[in-house]
Design a protein around this nucleic acid. Structure first.
Length: 269
DNA sequence: ATGGCGGCTGAGAGCCGA
């Protein structure tokens, strides 16, 4: 099973690139972020034509997530408020989509950027991440095979940052954000890319400015995390940098992981 | 130190991202 995550920075603008990439890669699952598109305008027909069923949770102009799947996916929820115990936390920003595909529960996230440490948006990010911890713990109790994927907007360690001294304590790299990432690992998730690659200079986002991509000045903020049973089955994980080099690219590149699941394992619910 | 770029809305220039 091949699964991928890609922040498209506008599905409308990137649809031709997406369709061409899907034709080449044929992942079983692709989690999308920053679709920036209300649901009635979601290009479901074009994607189905390409062989993909879709679930989406969008809004105009900002945010928006979607899940593409070769098999028909079963939607679980599109907001943390749909979760027992978190009913007071309805978020008008579309950043969450959870679904079950065959035996795997996939939680697709577009974590708030946070703007600047100490800002109101940063406070929103931290409280959002606090709610996420509860959701992840509950999902891990229910699903042996859990994937948490998406634009987490956290560079977990200095090796995930092109200039750690410049980024120190800045948004995406601050200690409270990194602690949230570590808590996800402590809860029972593993970082699939780090299972296979210890080296630095592996990034998933590069600023449009300053020829950052050409100089490989980036951050690793898009992630594929998996529960222990799934991580055991993870054969490979890598960043596909090719789409970032196309004309009019997204500023993020896809991250791809391959799994070999034992036949006939049931998920529980 | 600041802005660089690019996408959005709505028809300007300003907001937002990371």
């Amino acid at each position: 099973m091949k699964i991928a995550t890609w922040n498209l920075n506008s599905l409308r603008t990137r649809l031709p690139q997406l369709l061409s990439w899907l034709d080449g890669e044929r992942p079983d699952l692709l989690a999308l972020q920053e679709t920036k598109l209300p649901d009635p305008e979601f290009p479901a027909a074009e994607l189905l034509e390409c062989g993909y069923h879709a679930l989406c949770a969008g809004q105009p102009a900002y945010n928006g997530v979607a899940l593409l799947s070769r098999v028909v996916p079963n939607l679980c929820f599109t907001d943390f408020s749909e979760f027992p115990g978190l009913t007071g936390f309805r978020d008008p920003q579309r950043r969450v989509l959870a679904a079950v595909c065959t035996d795997v529960c996939v939680l697709n996230l577009y974590v708030p950027n946070g703007s600047e440490v100490g800002s109101p948006k940063y406070a929103y990010k931290l409280s959002w991440l606090e709610r996420l911890q509860e959701v992840v713990r509950a999902l891990l109790r229910r699903h042996e095979y859990l994937l948490l994927v998406g634009d987490l907007n956290i560079a977990p360690e200095d090796r995930d940052v092109w200039e750690p001294r410049a980024w120190k304590d800045k948004v995406l790299c601050s200690a409270p954000e990194r602690e949230h990432f570590q808590r996800l690992l402590e809860a029972g998730l593993e970082d699939c890319l780090r299972k296979h690659h210890a080296e630095g200079e592996l990034y998933s986002w590069w600023d449009y400015r300053n020829a950052s991509f050409q100089r490989n000045q980036g951050l690793r903020i898009d992630h594929i995390l998996a529960s222990a049973s799934l991580t055991q089955c993870c054969l490979s994980c890598h960043v596909d940098k090719r789409p970032r080099g196309l004309d009019r690219p997204s500023d993020h590149a896809p991250v791809i992981a391959e799994f070999e699941l034992p036949a006939g394992e049931p998920d529980e619910s």
